[in-house]
Design a binder for these strands. Structure first.
Lengths: 240, 240
DNA sequence: TAGTGGTCTAGACCACTCC
DNA sequence: GAGTGGTCTAGACCACTAA
């Protein structure tokens, strides 16, 4: 954890905490030590700890509650999924789409993937092709790339036992926690090979979502590209 | 300037400064008093003044420069453009596109628009059709709806004199300031009537952005729907 | 060199939560 | 009542700007 002593101390404290959270020193929804304790362990004053924690709060990594403590936030990717696609959810019931792994392979990273994950082109990767369905209706086709070294444990598991969500799997088997994600949205006329699993005619408009999932200390963990029929898609944002 | 003594003192200081800036106590790009002076005049410590000024910086009202001072920001419509215009060209270049008003009319609001603006269906509206271009290449086709009463002043201006940005115009002529916006993103195969101004073949995939612009007190001000060729656009978001 | 904001200290008291 | 974060003090020294 090479710390640059030229950085302000609140910055160093923030980076240290950030790395510790990424390394699961505290589980999500677990309280951090009190500010007084953090001040003591880091050898700074309370004011400096507060400034460090302020920036973690701003980054959405932790939450503070007066009288209770400071807690590691559990990012809710389930809800992010639902933000992206509108389904015929009966009675507002929240349902996780069923996931089906179509393919798993170990393959060298392409230039695009390697750049996004900040690794060398050709670094070994685990690659999944995954289809997500609601009521047996195909909704999203996903192309998922993971650095082989960090996610090797996934190769020991039968993909049919993966379940419907990947991030809990990363956490349990690879000790890797996704804290945030950057997404880039675009659209295209769907190519024939992607049209088939989605049950679309070639050339139909699809939304393309490229996601880089990040750890709490902003290391890129996963690259994925998702495609879904434009007619099913809604995405809401507030700009301030 | 009714101050609520129950509010934190840094909050009161911020509100006071904010009101003084709004009342032009200091002109844009003029320096505020030093933090030491502000602490003395407000009867608080420097740390409290800093916290107040921090929030003004976060709100974009003032800028701080180490060794120089704290300065009132000149509202920069260029930057507001980039705040609200989330599209980037594929190359990543960011330039304000040229705007061309294709049509202006006064017409009753449709149900969709009225609902978004929280007004009655049929309320008189000013409606613009606008094309935005970069390098004479059509980039976005916009359908813009405004409540007639609040924006009547715009009818007195020749649309050819509108310039490339609308929000500064709202501010100058209608005293209305856009503070935030909610956007809903989707995609579709473009209809023939929208394809022509964009120079696209009918059925080509386009991104559709529906925006409701809000005032600082969250009153809906403007409804607009923008369409642009999917191939030209990237929309970036961070999920936390 | 004088003056500014940037960082930091080592506490204090208050508001709130939980027992 | 004990323990937490929220606010606030009254300074200090550092890094930077401008004359």
């Amino acid at each position: 954890m090479a710390q640059d002593a030229r950085l302000p101390r609140y910055h160093q404290v923030r980076d240290t905490l950030s790395a510790e959270i990424a390394a699961h020193k505290w589980r999500p929804e677990e309280a951090l030590p009190t500010e007084t304790e953090l001040a003591a362990t880091h050898g700074v004053s309370i004011g400096t700890v507060r400034k460090a924690v302020d920036s973690l709060v701003a980054a959405g990594v932790v939450e503070r509650f007066q009288g209770k403590g400071t807690f590691v936030r559990r990012p809710d990717f389930q809800s992010s999924f639902f933000r992206f696609f509108r389904f015929a959810t009966v009675g507002g019931a929240v349902r996780v789409p069923v996931s089906r792994i179509l393919k798993r392979e170990v393959t060298p990273m392409t230039a695009v993937v390697a750049a996004a994950l900040k690794l060398e082109v050709g670094t070994p990767a685990i690659r999944f092709s995954r289809l997500r369905l609601i009521d047996d209706r195909p909704l999203v086709l996903e192309d998922i790339w993971l650095p082989h070294d960090r996610f090797e444990a996934l190769l020991a598991i039968d993909p049919r036992e993966f379940g419907d969500l990947l991030y809990p799997l990363y956490e349990q088997h690879c000790g890797v926690m996704v804290a945030s994600a950057q997404e880039t949205l675009s659209a295209e006329a769907v190519a024939a090979k992607n049209a088939r699993p989605l049950g679309l005619a070639a050339g139909a408009p699809v939304i393309v979502i490229e996601r880089v999932a990040l750890s709490a200390d902003r290391q890129p963990l996963e690259w994925r590209q998702s495609r879904g029929p434009a007619s099913e898609f809604r995405y809401q944002v507030e700009i301030r």
